[in-house]
């Protein structure tokens, strides 16, 4: 039972990283029907900037995270403004492939800066933990889950109660009608990319705050958030959170139980479980669990 609780805590921690990334993907997708393959690279950039501010510049941790998030938001804004905006109206695949190019352009210099050393992000909670009824509850997990919850709630309130949030929802439903209502759709696009970038930076910081630290392979975490949005459905905010929970828990349970119960699946199978879940869900529901089917005029 303790093992199960332990795995659940690990799963929820992973899920909070995936949720922050998946929300970014979905916000961008809802705003302009673009899936950004550059999102993991933006995450890596944000995590690196946080690490640079906190460790190299000696800024206190919270301001460093905020600065890192701002830096990632700026990269998001810049990539949207320079490369995605001229592509509006072009086929979706073309834009998706373009973001692959963007990913390579952003990630290569960051990899160069990270180098081969493992960096830390200077997280104040370190590797301390509480023990609750036999289960170990790391401070890091508590911080991650709490932050993800707070950001998610804020996001829901933002979409529900603010004028800008309303404008974003209107743009998601119909861009032309939104334009006709006096909404600056271009600015909504920029805002969506900036919000996604900032959340990705926080997710990247969390991903890099464990024992493994920040390295070039932290990027893999960002790629594993893709199954989360597909499982939830590309255009559903609720789906993104459910997807993140499904993927995070599946990965953690596999990491805990697979080596003893199904060793024939091979070492490190938990790393590919997100893709197995992705295949399984797509097999049953071609638009994810909560995604809306595409309705098309012939």
């Amino acid at each position: 039972m303790t093992t199960f609780i332990q795995a659940t805590i690990a799963g929820l921690s992973l899920a909070s990283i995936y949720a922050l990334l998946a929300l970014g993907f979905v916000i961008i997708y809802k705003a302009m029907q673009v899936v950004s393959f550059a999102h993991p690279a933006v995450m890596l950039f944000g995590a690196y900037m946080t690490s640079w501010f906190a460790v190299d510049k000696g800024i206190a941790f919270i301001p460093a995270v905020v600065l890192g998030a701002i830096a990632a938001a700026l990269i998001g804004w810049l990539s949207e403004r320079v490369t995605i905006r001229p592509m509006i109206g072009k086929p979706l695949f073309a834009i998706a492939i373009l973001t692959i190019g963007l990913d390579i352009v952003i990630r290569t210099p960051i990899n160069n800066l990270i180098g081969l050393d493992i960096r830390t992000v200077g997280a104040p909670w370190g590797f301390n933990s509480w023990t609750v009824g036999g289960a170990i509850l790391p401070h890091r997990s508590v911080a991650m889950i709490a932050t993800a919850l707070v950001i998610t709630v804020l996001l829901f309130l933002f979409f529900r109660y603010t004028r800008v949030g309303l404008a974003m929802r209107a743009t998601a439903i119909d861009q032309e009608v939104a334009l006709a209502q006096g909404i600056n759709v271009g600015r909504i696009f920029s805002l969506a990319w900036m919000m996604a970038g900032a959340m990705a930076a926080v997710a990247g910081m969390f991903a890099a705050s464990d024992l493994a630290g920040l390295s070039q392979s932290t990027y893999i975490v960002g790629i594993k958030a893709l199954p989360a949005i597909v499982v939830g459905g590309l255009d559903s905010i609720n789906g993104a959170i459910v997807g993140a929970l499904v993927i995070g828990l599946a990965e953690a349970y596999t990491a805990t139980y697979q080596s003893t119960h199904a060793p024939w699946l091979g070492g490190n199978f938990s790393q590919v479980v997100p893709y197995v879940v992705l295949l399984a869900v797509l097999l049953i529901r071609p638009y994810g669990l909560f995604g809306s089917p595409e309705v098309e005029r012939v």
Binding site: V35, L92, F93, A96, L226, P227, V230, L234, G266, G267, N268, F269, Q271, V272, Y275, V276, L278, L279, L282, L283, P286, Y287, G288, E294
Partner: peptide, 28 residues
Amino acid sequence: PIAVRLRGLYLAFLTLGLVFLGEHIFRE
């Protein structure tokens, strides 16, 4: 046949998953 049911970007994700599963199989 799995891919036939999928449209657009969902297909891209399916094939992306294939690459990671393939890597795992090749390793094992």
